[in-house]
Simulated scan of single mutants.
Amino acid sequence: MKVTRHAASRRRRTRTGTRGLWTTAIAALAATGVVLCLVMVLRPDGGSDPGRTVAASAADTPSSTTQRTPSRSPSASPSPSTAPPTATPGASPSKSPAATPGARAAASKPARAASAEAPSAGRIRPGVTYRGLATHYDAADGNGACLFGPSDGLMIAAMNHTDYETSRACGAYIRVRAASGATVTVKITNECPLPCAPGQIDLSKQAFAKLGALSAGELSITWTLLSPSTSDTVAVRYKTGSTQYWCGIQVVGHRNPVARLEVRADGAWRALARTEFNYFLSEQGTGCGGAVRITDIYGEQLQLDGIPVRADVLQPTGVQFRQR
């Protein structure tokens, strides 16, 4: 009987121990559930993994380099509103073998060169070498789309329609170089209409003959913008029919290409719109006969006070842009 009681007592202890283990396990599970509930309540995102949320945001937000700065090679052509000639057979800017170190640097980084050296430059930028074709035409007395009138000499050329850029190229001096090494300096006085391609220069027959035989018809060339030495000074001409109520103003004899023309009116400078025929128009007569301010592509300004309205008369000013 003692043995039996002892065995029964041991079985009771065993059952009691089992119940204790179950009780402990249940309590532990309950505590774990409470902790999990607290974590779910206290987390601001309601249960998502913060590490994954940040990673997703970073992946979904484009970087500034990828989104805002298109990848391009140094010779790629920017858009036509702010860029050098686009590439046709060699029309994009490139390094010239004969260029100075500064010119080579500008050619390899045309956008930086434009902002540093010519803040108002359009498609044709200083320090950049362009490639294209030279053709020729009969220039007659040298007058052309720029309406400068007859030329004293016929070392002149017509700029292709794209790079003519609404007469912005008018009056620019460029040096043209053939593959043979022969060069000629010409002044842009005309426009070569389409299908003249970007980079193409249509030379007077006299200028083309400096590079090769007229029978060749066309030549592969490179060309660069110049800021030449000159004894000329800037002159202003009002268009035929101009009055104080409507006028067109033209700049003649400028060393560097003209980027902007403004008139003084109501105490402020107002830019006039440029035309394809190389006049700046004031269709309401604003500023006609008053002060004029002319800006070249380098940002230099010439202020001219009291230019009277005298239609179709070339009025000298005695001033000139600096040589660059």
Rank of each mutant, 00 (worst) to 15 (best):
V39R: 12
S108P: 02
L272C: 05
S220T: 13
A172F: 04
C192E: 04
G217E: 11
V39K: 10
G287V: 12
T233W: 00
W223L: 06
G267H: 10
A139V: 08
N160K: 08
G171Y: 05
T222A: 09
S64H: 08
L225S: 02
Q67T: 13
P89M: 01
G33H: 08
G20I: 12
H161V: 10
G46I: 11
A140S: 12
G199E: 06
P101A: 04
R125G: 03
R255T: 02
A113I: 01
C146F: 06
R255A: 03
D305N: 15
R52Q: 14
A213D: 15
H136I: 02
W269C: 04
N190Q: 00
H6A: 14
L147W: 02
T82E: 12
T166I: 05
A157N: 05
P50L: 08
G212A: 03
R5G: 10
R237D: 11
C288Q: 02
M40Q: 13
L154V: 01
R177C: 00
T230Q: 05
R12N: 11
P198S: 04
T162G: 03
R10S: 11
F321T: 00
V258D: 02
A145P: 00
G127Y: 06
R123Q: 11
N278L: 04
V184F: 11
P84N: 12
K205S: 15
L281P: 00
P101C: 01
D305G: 07
